[in-house]
Design a binder for these strands. Structure first.
Lengths: 341, 341
DNA sequence: GTGAAAGCGCTAACAG
DNA sequence: CTGTTAGCGCTTTCAC
């Protein structure tokens, strides 16, 4: 004797006096089932406590109803907004999101992609454009719909949507130059396997170069994404008698650390030193002083990416690579000011 | 003629000159397959580009290899650390995490639970202890291994691991009282469908009561989780001539908003007004002034929860409800000080 | 240690 | 509109 634990589609069918096929149809093509039959099935579902088995659905090579997302880390305000928007938009299209984090290890990213593919995700969201060749080939080979978020680039192997980080770097650099600064320092995260930071830096440097402004190597500081580290790393620079008049930080968290370093050394931001960030994180507008930065609209990036992915998955037509640049915008606020003469 | 797109277990079997059954065994019980056979299969897997189909596995009522996580939102530093730790520990046990967000809507949470169950997750992580009765019954009915994170309580329907938020409230309240304050205001988020905030508030109030300190209703402010809103909401209170000498905020983000409100009104924190938070978010130690708060160790909560869930899933023995309280700790920092006489 | 065969729960034709 | 039939890709008894 077999004791089934949970109701399956057959139990529902029996109770509703229809065939399993009809029950199945009722879920997948409700319009093809007569309303009263539908109601009977609905009732049977409730009274049996039946819960569909997506796995059994997915086996037909059909929809698994999941989309994978691979991010470096969740423990970071940086991606939070992005992921939230991505996830919400995806949910609205009926997908459930499988998330995995690789901790900035691209080998791990490849492994995670394989693992998500085992779950037969219908699409993949990635962060950035810097991925292993294996990762790209696997995506190609399985023809996995995919979209890279965060970074826009006109020439990519997969669809992408993101801010033009190079443009962001240029904008903030130009702003600082426009204020008359020439003695400028940089506090950036490591650009290794982090193309966002690399692009921003490249943007900043290109504008500096064009303006003929040199940044001495010892004024190009390296930090991790942490207020604490940024603060520690920039303190020596700020306490030097020969300090810069402006600092451009690789992102807002770093900028916040720099501001704290300055303030605890008794420097006024911005009159003693201007500080600019990139990212416009939630909260940046409400710091004291409020932070001049570049708005990246990460929620729009996440949402747009989800829409593109949905289209890639559902429109058998539009299989071409889509590339969307989300505008960046200079947010002039209190932490930067014109250089006193 | 059938054109299969991707290699399946049969292709692998043919290439390796074994039966599909052996290939399957090779994945699931490698020790039951001779090493050289195993190697041959391994080779065939690589050359065919075969990727296992978890869905087909899951259909046998066996492991889906996924665990579900339902959180109110991802767009919030509050849960980021927790989720990251949970996810990492889960990954270490070989699970992939399915994440869904309900935006603080508990009806939606129930729907998401159903949806995750459709994917046959092997376990569920939830935030908080406040859930619909349907949610709890569904978990019971399907005997879903589950763990509630964030909040500890000695009497729960499912396993839980979290900080004792009531204790956190008590600790911070006692600290403020110990500093001699009697004119104390509260800035808290809405406690509706948010048991963490409710427990913290209850802890604070119980200590206040015990000490005979009354908090006038107009000094009990309500805000959402945002620096901006907290700042706006607390400004009127702070600019009143008859202002409190200390403010306890429902969490660190709110506390930061309160501090900014005070500072932009020209008040010194802590000499003019003490401000305390709860949570010890990353960054709180590096604010200016650094924030006195209660450390909640959310990474430990997430990690412990994942370990418990893994145990619940894999140890057929230990099916009892587990409850773990993660210690809270007062972090005395610069934003509070003894009341000047 | 390995293969053959019988499903797992569901869905997509195809009839009716 | 609904039922019948034939699998999807894999795992698991049972033999061998």
């Amino acid at each position: 004797m077999k004791t089934k634990k949970y109701a399956d589609i057959i139990d529902v069918a029996n109770l509703a006096n229809v065939s399993p096929a009809t029950v199945s149809r009722c879920f997948n093509h409700p319009d093809k089932v007569r309303p009263d039959t539908r109601k009977r099935i609905q009732l049977a579902v409730e009274s049996t406590g039946y819960i569909r088995n997506r796995a059994a659905q997915a086996i037909h090579g059909r929809r698994s109803g999941t989309v994978g997302l691979i991010v470096p880390t969740l423990d970071n305000a940086i991606f939070a907004t992005l992921i939230q928007a991505f996830s919400e938009q995806l949910n609205a299209s009926g997908f459930t999101m499988l998330v995995a984090t690789h901790g900035y290890d691209l080998d791990r990213e490849y492994q995670l992609l394989r693992s998500l593919l085992e779950h037969r995700v219908e699409g993949i969201g990635l962060i950035g454009l810097d991925h292993k060749d294996e990762t790209y080939s696997l995506i190609d080979r399985r023809e996995t719909r995919s979209v890279a978020m965060w970074n826009y680039h006109p020439d990519t192997r997969i669809s992408c949507v993101g801010a033009d980080n190079s443009e962001a770097g240029k904008l903030i650099a130009q702003h600082v130059l426009d204020l008359g600064h020439k003695r400028i320092a940089l506090v950036f995260p490591d650009t290794f396997e982090n193309d966002r930071a690399a692009n921003r830096l490249e943007g900043v440097l290109s504008i500096m170069n064009k303006a003929g402004v040199q940044i001495p190597p010892e004024w190009h500081l390296n930090t991790i994404y942490s207020i604490k580290n940024a603060r520690e790393v920039s303190a020596p620079l700020l306490s030097s008698p020969n300090r810069p008049t402006a600092i451009i930080a690789g992102n807002d968290v770093i900028a916040q650390g720099v501001i704290y370093a300055a303030q605890s050394l008794g420097l006024n931001v911005p009159t003693d030193i201007s500080v600019a960030g990139i990212g416009d994180f939630s909260g940046s507008a409400h710091l004291l002083p409020s932070l001049t930065t570049i708005k990246l609209r990460s929620n729009k990036v996440g949402q747009t990416a989800a829409i593109i992915l949905d289209k890639l998955i559902n429109d058998s037509e539009n299989k071409n690579i889509q590339r969307v640049a989300i505008e960046v915008e200079l947010m002039k606020r209190q932490s930067t000011c014109r250089l006193a003469i």
